[in-house]
Structure formats: structure tokens, C-alpha cells
Simulated assay, not measured.
Amino acid sequence: MSNAVVETNIPGFPLKRGKVRDVYDLGEALIIVATDRISAFDYILPTPIPGKGKILTAMTNFWLDRLEEDYTHHRISCNLADMPPAFRERADILEGRTMLVRKTKVIPFECVVRGYLAGSGWKDYLATGAVCGHELPERMQESEQLPEPLFTPATKPESGHDINVSLEQMAETIDPELVEVLQAVSLSIYDDCAEYARERGIIIADTKLEWGLSDDGELVLIDEVLTPDSSRFWPADAYQVGMSPPSFDKQFVRDWLANSGWDKNSPPPPLPDEIVQKSAAKYQEALERLTRG
């Protein structure tokens, strides 16, 4: 994929490479570059999705603009002119996918909000009648809207699957009052943004938010926000209770991998061109639906 950005290498700055993002340390700030890598089942896939990083960055910027009156976030600028010369000189690959952000003390939990019974939540319900310890009514169906959104935090291991934890377990690691605040603000953001998205034909079934603390203890929204990589997006016009709806997120890629014969314990196979093209189109459609007037 000649027009895909698989990785970046900007000299002179410490680099931490995540599954999708390359993060450069500037001392008092960070620069986050969203590449076109895509991950699934805890593996980085060998085939990128061209343009994906730009779409994720544009979507995060859109939501931060919408939320910034009520929530402090870490974005400083997405303009390469505000970044060191080494980054400006690589505008050919960095333009549209790069964000200068404040450093924070990262809170070591994924703040997951679930509005619908899907994914691991559905599996948990089938096994226990609950989702992450939250008891639910009997005879609920797959993809059914929950009686109310649930806050289900998870740990953030360096590798492997996220591990769901209770609020009590969360409060053993961080201040119990902060746990209550994280629950309240995460649910509030989900409620607001899910309603907005629904008006534009997208159901946000669930999402995960990340937070940090500034030096003076202020809560700061960090990382990507309400993108198809951090959320489960469904087209409202194809939604049906009792089945897993088609999606705008990488579930499309997960489904192909699950049916490919791959054992999920060895290097994953390359994605066919058709899957790459359809995935890129789904990401682009989600962005266009959400950002239209």
C-alpha cells in the first residue's frame, strides 16, 4: 500500500510505538501520529488501511471541538507549523494525522461505557446474566439497548486483552472520589455524543475513553475520542435486535479474520484488497455522517 503510512521515524525525539500511534516525547509535550496500522485480536495486522490515521485524527478533533466547552482535553494543536522543524519537514506524511498534546499523568484504566449488549458484554451476559457485575433483566437479546448505559472500567496492560474490573477494584488503585468523577464524566460524554450520533444515523453501541491528570490535578481527556477504533459504531438504518449489526468500526476486519481460518496465535494473514477498500470506505462514511451539518 504505497499511499499508506505504516510507521514514522522522526529523528531527535524519543519514540514509543503503539498498535496504531507513534508517540514522540518533546519533554513538556507529546506529538501523537496516527498511522494507518490496524490491530485486531491483539495483533498488528500486516496490511494497513490507507488514510485511516487521518480519519481517526479528524474524528477525534471533531469530538474535542464539540466537548471542549465542558471538558478539558490534552490537544494543543494539529497544525504542523506549531511543531518542531523535524515534523514540519515531513508534512508529506504527517499532515492531517499529527497532534501536539499536553503531557498528563495517565490514569491506568480504560473508561468503558456500554449502551448496548454487544461484544464481550453479550458473552458475559450469556454466561452470568450480568455485564461486568451489573445485573440485567432476563431474556435480553444480542445488540439490545441496555436499560441505561453502564460504566465498566478495564485495566490497560501493555499487551494482551483488557481486563474488566469493578469500581471497588478501581478504587484500590486510584482515589475513590476520582473513580466517581470518572464514572460521571464518562457517562455524560457518552450520553451527549450518542444522542448526537443517533441524529446522524449512527448508533454508538459502546466506547472507551481515556483520562489523565495535569500537574495541578485537573482531569484531562486524552488519546483518541469516539473513533471507530475506540468505539462500536452501527448504522441506525440496519440495526436489529437479536443480531450483530454491520458496523463502521474494525469489527468488519475482525469478522473476516475470524472466518479466515487464522488460529489467532500466529502472525495474522494479510487482508485482501476488497477488505481493505471496504474498511477504508466504512471509516470515511462514519466521519462524513458525523461531521455533516
Rank of each mutant, 00 (worst) to 15 (best):
V253W: 13
D124L: 11
G129H: 06
L45H: 12
I202W: 07
I76R: 00
P11I: 09
A130R: 11
E7D: 14
V20I: 14
T128F: 03
L117N: 02
F87E: 09
P246Y: 03
V6P: 02
L117T: 00
E172Y: 00
S120T: 12
N3Y: 06
K250L: 15
I38Y: 02
T8H: 13
W262L: 08
E7H: 11
F13G: 04
E28L: 04
G96V: 04
L100F: 14
G217T: 06
A154Y: 05
E110T: 08
S166W: 11
V113L: 05
V113I: 09
A58L: 10
Y239F: 15
N265E: 06
K19L: 06
E158H: 14
E180M: 07
Y24E: 06
I107G: 01
E135F: 05
T60L: 00
G53M: 10
P46I: 10
V253F: 09
R21G: 07
G18M: 15
E224G: 01
A280H: 09
W211H: 08
V181T: 15
I275T: 05
G242E: 02
G242W: 06
N61M: 11
S120V: 08
E180K: 12
V5P: 02
S166K: 12
G96Y: 07
F13D: 03
A58H: 08
G160W: 11
E148A: 14
V276M: 11
T72V: 15
M1K: 12
I76Q: 00
S231Q: 09
G12W: 12
T47N: 05
A184H: 02
P246W: 07
T128L: 07
E285M: 13
D237C: 05
P176S: 05
F41Q: 01
V112A: 09
L136E: 07
E199Y: 00
G261V: 10
V276E: 06
E68T: 12
A236L: 08
T60C: 07
L271M: 07
S279K: 13
Y125K: 14
R200D: 00
R102G: 08
T227F: 12
P153K: 10
D216P: 02
D42L: 12
E148W: 07
I44F: 15
D22H: 10
S244P: 03
N61T: 11
D65S: 13
V276H: 08
M243K: 08
D82M: 05
D215T: 13
G96M: 07
L182E: 03
F248W: 03
V113N: 00
V225E: 02
E144H: 03
R37D: 03
D273Q: 15
I107S: 04
P137T: 00
D22A: 04
W122R: 03
S166A: 14
Q284N: 04
V185T: 14
F248Q: 00
Y190H: 09
E180N: 14
P268G: 06
F62E: 01
I10C: 00
K208E: 01
I275V: 15
N265F: 03
P245R: 01
G53K: 04
T152G: 11
W234V: 10
P147L: 05
D255S: 09
T104G: 07
A127C: 05
E210P: 05
Q277C: 12
G51L: 09
T8V: 14
V241Q: 00
P176G: 04
Y43F: 11
E7W: 09
L178H: 04
T207N: 13
L213S: 00
D237E: 11
L167N: 10
V5K: 13
I32C: 03
A29V: 01
D216V: 04
V179W: 09
A238H: 06
